[in-house]
Design a protein around this nucleic acid. Structure first.
Length: 202
DNA sequence: ATAATGATTCGCT
DNA sequence: GCGAATCATTATG
């Protein structure tokens, strides 16, 4: 039996370290009694309150960012560009608005379901390549917002063998240029080297 | 109440 | 490579 990552694991302050460690772990959802799972191959860390690219920058508290300030180990799902659901793992103790965005996964279980959710797209590499598509394939919706990552819920993360450093690429985050040269260049985007399911963004 | 905008994706050139 | 799609969230009046 695979081991579920306990919520405690997400409650320390080092969101960048958590983003790095999540590479290679298994994201699992159970939506409408169907299990789908995938290996996490791309993540990004968002470190509130000092990270200008983070929604919780400067401790900005709004109805949307509220869940980011809760204790680590719960889901933060929000809608981007009116179209896409982006899935994050909230990290840190209560009151710290940090989270890890899951940008790319490699499909593992429930391939058929993922194809259906992705409108029978036969292109394998497009199945879960990018944060919006990950949520689509795994059936993640705003209903998951605020849910604890537990096997008794619809979504959780399972442990896996630690991926060695020489297999992980750290680089600048994507789509955050407006937050300025300092924060947009922080090497807080992590990818599994050579993996075909990392997001296409440059 | 209204207006601007975005942690993106897709289709067309 | 470029621009449209599309709407919840946010700030502002």
């Amino acid at each position: 039996m695979p081991e579920i990552i306990p919520q405690d694991y997400f409650r320390h302050e080092d969101v960048v370290g958590i983003a790095r460690d999540l590479i290679g772990k298994i994201l699992v959802t159970n939506v409408e009694n169907t299990i789908t799972s995938a290996i996490i191959v791309e993540t990004e860390a968002y470190k509130g309150p000092e990270d200008k690219a983070c929604h919780a920058y400067n401790n900005r508290l709004t109805p949307r960012t509220e869940v980011m300030f809760k204790e680590g180990g719960i889901a933060y799902v929000y809608i981007c560009y009116g179209i896409h659901r982006l899935f994050n793992v909230v990290t840190g103790p209560v009151g710290v608005g940090s989270a890890v965005l899951i940008r790319g996964v490699e499909p593992l279980l429930g391939l058929e379901t993922m194809f259906i959710r992705r409108n029978n797209n036969q292109k394998m590499h497009n199945l879960t390549q990018g944060p919006g598509l990950v949520s689509q394939a795994l059936g993640i919706t705003t209903d998951h917002n605020g849910l604890p990552l537990l096997s008794t819920n619809a979504i959780w993360i399972e442990n896996a063998k630690m991926v060695p450093d020489d297999q992980v690429i750290a680089s600048a985050r994507v789509g955050v240029e407006p937050s300025g040269p300092i924060w947009s260049k922080m090497p807080w985007r992590f990818r599994l080297k050579g993996n075909k399911w990392v997001s296409p963004a440059k």
